[in-house]
Amino acid sequence: MDLTILTHAVPLTAIICLVYSNSRFELPERILRSALVMFIKTISFLGVLYAFLLWLSR
């Protein structure tokens, strides 16, 4: 798998999390906290998925 292509997923996830959380709340602290939690969850999920696919493709 091409790692340079995969690296696009990290900032893309960050942008999606920020914009989504921005549309849910009004307070900056709440927006940032919610975006951070969502980012960690999403990146963890993608990491697990990538590791699983890597294991399958061995």
Binding site: I16, V19, Y20, N22, S23, R24, F25, E26, L27
Partner: peptide, 27 residues
């Protein structure tokens, strides 16, 4: 895909501008 996602994210922004934050103020 990036340009599609940018457009769809702006839909959230339009909605927020017209109707306020979806879940409330946050505090």
């Amino acid at each position: 895909v990036f340009t599609w996602i940018a457009g769809l994210l702006n839909l959230l922004a339009i909605w927020d501008a017209a109707d306020g934050p979806a879940y409330g103020y946050g505090n």
